[in-house]
Write a protein that binds this DNA or RNA. Structure first.
Lengths: 194, 194
DNA sequence: TCTTGCCTACCTTCTGGTAGGTAGCTTGTC
DNA sequence: GACAAGCTACCTACCAGAAGGTAGGCAAGA
């Protein structure tokens, strides 16, 4: 039943890789067909229109992130560790090139030309991430392990922006190491050594 | 002689607006032709290929930025004021929607699918911006007006990433105010109140 | 037998790009 | 000053291929 590699999943995986490389207009059904080893028309069988495909993809991405964060909440109790794990996750993805950019961050840059249904999913990701980070930061502040300069909400937005900006720079310089150069001090800022 | 609105300039201005909305594959010669009031073929007269148009556009953008920063260096002597002006410039652009995203930041996200000649111009912008910020931060540190937590180079990359990340978030939330929420604390971090 | 998943074949529109022509300047030369 | 030559900026009319998408058929499994 829950096969790990259905054709629909192959299509979604392939589309994700292509979107991460160049955004919504950076790939076509023909590109996917060539990689997955299927005909263009067969993709329409699974996803009638391109917007359906990308909406599904972003929705699934968002669910994966939510599951990942829920898992993190279980495994790592302390707020500092959670932030460190969140930053570390992306540092690993960018270093090993497995996911060198956040799907939603890339799509967010193109919001003006995105189909509305896709844009909504992208916005939902930002709200979700923002609220998770806010609650982690609030808990860290209350238990004294994190030092916030502003509100938890503002600090959450700063962290998100730093991560996305670091992705842009890593790509611009073609150097994964720049991601850590930017994000490590952001953690130290919240959790300064005495 | 130096007319302020030649057709070539109209084309470049229009293309810049369209790129800022959706990146390299987010616009076509037909889009530009419709706005400028010219035929598609006439655009090819000025810019033989799309890559030529975008390379020229990015080169010109980079020169404008360089001129702007040189002007800033003259007008504003103190490093804190320079950083404030740099952040304030973008805050104004995003708030009044005149230039709601940095051309090079947007193109940088799509580097894997960019023509090499365009990618090179984009990288050059990042290097230029990074070196300007580094020198401003170094001077601020030496004269005691700025407090750096890391090297000037690292702090420069942090600032760049914050600005670009803040653009992404402002677009994602559809809220220009978020740009200031993110960038103001980044300045306070370098120039803390006593 | 009905559904699922894929196919071939086709359509329309858009894409970047080319060929060739023309009207209106600027030239240089006599 | 006359006039051909050449250049600039634009045009119409194409083109090949890629874009997203549709219609209808066929084979295999529930």
């Amino acid at each position: 039943m829950s096969n790990l590699s259905t054709t629909a999943d192959d299509i979604l995986r392939c589309a994700r890789t292509l979107i991460v490389a160049g955004g919504y207009n950076g790939f076509s059904y023909a590109d996917i067909a060539a990689v997955v080893g299927i005909r263009k028309a067969s993709i329409h069988h699974h996803f009638p229109a391109k917007a359906d495909l990308v909406r599904t993809l972003v929705f699934q991405y968002r669910q994966e992130v939510e599951a990942g964060l829920a898992n993190l909440d279980q495994r790592v109790p302390d707020p500092v560790g959670k932030i460190r794990a969140y930053l570390g996750f992306w540092e690993a993805c960018i270093t090993d090139q497995s996911l060198p950019f956040c799907v939603c961050a890339l799509l967010a840059t193109q919001i003006p030309i995105l189909p509305e249904e896709v844009a909504q999913e992208v916005r939902a990701h930002f709200r979700m991430l923002s609220s998770w980070l806010s609650s982690v930061l609030t808990r860290g502040k209350n238990q004294g392990s994190l030092h916030l300069n502003g509100t938890a909400e503002a600090e959450a937005e700063i962290l998100i922006a730093a991560v996305h900006g670091a992705m842009v720079s890593a790509r611009a310089y073609g150097d994964p190491a720049i991601f850590g150069v930017i994000t490590h001090p952001m953690l130290e800022r919240l959790n300064p050594p005495p």
